[in-house]
Write a protein that binds this DNA or RNA. Structure first.
Lengths: 186, 186
DNA sequence: GTCTATACATCGATAGAC
DNA sequence: GTCTATCGATGTATAGAC
């Protein structure tokens, strides 16, 4: 009687709103961390009501999981050092926000939800396997630590000259480090 | 009529209790971060009442500032790379807890309180001044990032093999990195 | 000096109206 | 599909008794 026109199905409308909420959640979790992010705040940022967020996601925890979910990162092939530098570059340029959600959330919340820990662990295994050395695991761990530290200082703490420096300069200075850690020498 | 004996003056008693509260606060902030730390929890850990903590420190924010206050770290003299490795070693062995309060708190809270940012900035300036290169500031920032990343992965995220590795092994693998970043080559 | 009692705010979550 | 109303829990902070 009313809407004959194929404007939007209910399902479409829902997916659209859900996507808006997820985007707002991602941004807020990245900026404030888990604890300081409120359902009300996310809802407000998405232009909807707090009750609706709960209705869609059920709980704050679930909303967080959905928002922090990342497409698993595949390691580029080639010389390990170069591949890792490429990986770092992507995290510096393409998706600083995505990196932030994971990094900040691991610190404010995720001691409990071991999701990230397994993901990080898998990444470490792959890196370690690509390094020809007896202490490959430790070397992989150090490379991961360096990447985390750079993202941390640059985007979270906004410390030092790292925040302003071009990604190219950072990569150039870090290249010897990565080669030393991932290189062929045992 | 009652206490003639010089057991403890009221001021002494207060300082003692205050110290106990501060120790508990430090440990709790390090473990849980700012948001998840509660006055009640700190008070309970210190064996006193929550009201007393407020009475002494006035607010959670003030308690946090006092607890996170660190003796400013002087940079060892000598070759910059060696001095920085020594600095890292101290943070790995001597006082992981102290490092954690600052690091974790910068992430869960301290975007606001710029105290740490100035402290870190001063440290960076000193490191930068010791590096003979045109881009000394960026190099100092990267070294700081590496140190932060290592402490982060080892003690906060407890990720990877970093958590279990002996400090000596970590330092040995990192030495070329530090030399490359703080070295004489421009 | 230390503790009890409580005011006041905020948040996550639920139930139900429209 | 979306919003209002509200419950229950928790936390900071205050006032005052002992």
């Amino acid at each position: 009687m009313s809407d004959e026109k194929p404007r939007r199905t209910r399902a479409e409308q829902r997916r659209e709103t859900e996507a808006r909420i997820l985007a707002a959640a991602r941004a807020t979790f990245a900026e404030l961390g888990y604890e300081r992010t409120t359902i009300r705040g996310v809802a407000s940022a998405a232009g909807v009501n707090a009750g609706l967020v709960m209705h869609y996601f059920g709980s704050k925890e679930e909303l967080f999981s959905r928002a922090a979910m990342l497409p698993e990162e595949e390691l580029p092939v080639g010389h390990p050092a170069e591949a890792l530098l490429t990986s770092l570059r992507r995290r510096l340029d393409d998706e600083p926000v995505a990196s932030l959600v994971v990094l900040r959330s691991m610190l404010t919340h995720a001691e409990a939800s071991g999701e990230f820990r397994v993901a990080a662990s898998a990444w470490l295994d792959r890196v370690g396997a690509a390094i020809p050395a007896a202490d490959a695991e430790l070397r992989a761990g150090l490379i991961s630590a360096i990447i985390n530290g750079v993202v941390l200082d640059r985007y979270l703490l906004k410390l030092s000259s790292l925040a302003d420096a071009p990604a190219d300069d950072i990569l150039a200075l870090l290249r010897p480090c990565f080669e030393s850690l991932a290189g062929e020498s045992g």
